[in-house]
Nucleic acid binder design. Structure first.
Lengths: 341, 341
DNA sequence: CTTAGCACTCGAGTTATCGGAGTGCTAACA
DNA sequence: TGTTAGCACTCCGATAACTCGAGTGCTAAG
């Protein structure tokens, strides 16, 4: 257990280091407002804090920097979510009150504003579609062998796929069948679509079309791409401003990581509600061992629909990011509610 | 006019520098196969080549590196497009002979393979849609006030947009009108769509719907987004491997540039047919003053539909990139032809 | 328990040193 | 006249030596 003074000092060190990215010395700390102890006292305490593992020294006779546990303690017990700037708050509100755009556009704007305010790379996963309900299914022929299949969900998401009709199948028969599917499947959630088709429509279908397997495969494919996670990114270049990324190698490994959808999804997905913070090695990945990821889910009816988050150096402005994400997920959840109800 | 020997030497210097990224000395050149002159002779010639502006010295008593004009001369007169590796050629062929995917997917794969083979960042613009013909227009209502508008072209491109129906307009009237538009406008090229609507359908429309301006505006919006240039990128991180980008600042300015669709479009667009090479300052942009851009258009019926290109350091493997782009644009053009005819 | 004082440490930044690759020039040679 | 060997010279880049100062830990006094 830390004494009040130790907390105060740890807090000061982290705050200072977040701003300046340089080891913090005892003198610097002692000079802060309402600190009220001499450098020597601070030094003793700092030595203790180091022994406890909250601070570390890059080398003897340098100041201290927070260790990973130091950040963890700070994040768990010391920091106070920052009051957002009016202008930032306004910009966010405007995002969601402006005339409703297509969802994808709103998402892109959201991610973009988040990265602009924080100056970190920001990422959004989802929103997940798999309990969206089918609204409309349609095949539009382009020529004898080519057609476009379109799927619309009740939330207005559209997926399309070009299909080549194999020899021996007529486009008209496919159209016919799709029309049937369209009326029968309307309102069925996507995740149940496949099952419904197989179980309830199998018989009927085999009466209607000579080559129904083909159709089923097509629907399968569309669903697969529909349900796979979608990643939106913004502000990738911001990390280049951080002094911890003056080394090109680090930049490279991070950039490469950001291009792997799957890894990004894994890193950012959060099970809990509320803002989640993962610091350094807590991410279990070498490339982000000097990064922190702050993320939060947005909800619809208490269900997590997707995640929005920020990637930055462990020396991150947690106070700002946390309150920002808090507001953003709230507003985005509300936006989704407005949009779909 | 350069003597044969000078050409041979310039060629050797460029070739060597492209591989090693280090100033090339006279000894190195003289030791190359079928050079057959002593270092001293080479030195004299190199001094001349420098005077003519084709080579430069980073400092006295270092080897020579090609100047921008050096590269220009090399590209215009010296290089011999390289025979592609069988495996690369095969990979490309497979791209286009595999079962036809949606165009967007093929594009992404094309760009991706280009960057993988070259190890440079590669980019594709287009394909332009504006002489695509309208195939299908449809509005799918989601609820009382929200709907999705879908536009399909004869090439299978799908654009969709969520629309909010304003007070005082009924969704059914909009659907009705869109049906009318759908039959009347089918087969009209996109770039003539607007004019056609205004000129030929104005009267008819105003009879059918109380609030047709709204619809027109919607179509306008869709077209706008339809016609704006589309940029596909791959292998952004490859530039990080180039020694000329060990400095983070350069990386940053380039990355930021790559995020500006408009600039990228401007840089890569080529008027001419065939492969175009722009070296360093020929791009008229500080951020790419140490880069070369090699790009080529792909054609349908002799018309340029889009561009595919590569961004790398001026010290680029032009011989490889040029022949690669040559094959790629040919094959892609052919693919488009197959797809749409 | 706190703090002033002080010797000590160590890295960052600067300057000095050194080796070697590469040049330009000269003179000899074909 | 063109080519080449030889050689003195240049200059970069890597390495070592040096200095400076911020910051520490320890001690002893308040």
């Amino acid at each position: 257990m830390l004494s009040e003074r130790q907390k105060k000092i740890l807090r000061a060190v982290v705050d200072e280091y977040i701003v300046n990215a340089e080891p913090v010395g005892s003198r610097t700390v002692s000079k802060r407002e309402d600190m009220g102890f001499s450098a020597a006292t601070i030094r003793n305490e700092m030595a203790d804090l180091e022994e406890m593992g909250f601070l570390e020294q890059p080398h003897t006779s340098a100041g201290r920097i927070p260790s990973q546990s130091g950040y963890r303690y700070y994040v768990d017990h010391l920091m106070v979510p920052e009051r957002l700037k009016r202008s930032d708050l306004l910009a966010i509100r405007r995002l969601f009150t402006s005339q409703m755009d297509a969802l994808e556009q709103t998402i892109q704007q959201t991610v973009s504003i988040l990265s602009r305010i924080t100056n970190y790379t920001s990422i959004m996963l989802g929103p997940e579609l798999y309990d969206n309900k089918l609204k409309h299914l349609q095949v539009i022929p382009l020529n004898d062998r080519l057609a476009v299949a379109i799927l619309v969900t009740d939330t207005g998401h559209v997926d399309q796929r070009q299909i080549t009709v194999p020899e021996g199948v007529s486009l008209s028969s496919i159209e016919q069948t799709v029309n049937l599917l369209n009326t029968k499947l309307s309102g069925v959630p996507l995740y149940r679509l496949k099952r419904t088709v197989y179980k309830e429509l199998f018989e009927e279908l085999s009466r209607h079309v000579e080559n129904y397997e083909y159709l089923l495969a097509m629907i399968d494919q569309m669903l697969a791409s529909e349900l796979e996670s979608r990643v939106f990114t913004s502000g990738t270049t911001h990390i280049l401003n951080q002094p911890e990324f003056k080394d090109v190698e680090k930049v490279k490994s991070l950039m490469e990581l950001l291009e792997e959808t799957e890894t990004v999804t894994r890193l950012f997905t959060t099970r809990d509600t509320g803002v989640q913070i993962k610091i350094g090695y807590e991410n279990h990945l070498e490339a982000v061992s000097h990064c922190s990821i702050v993320s939060a889910s947005f909800l619809l009816d208490g269900r997590s629909l997707g995640t929005i988050g920020v990637l930055g150096p462990t020396r991150m402005d947690y106070q700002k990011v946390v309150s920002l994400l808090d507001v953003l997920t709230r507003d985005f959840s509300k936006h989704l509610r407005d949009l779909y109800k």
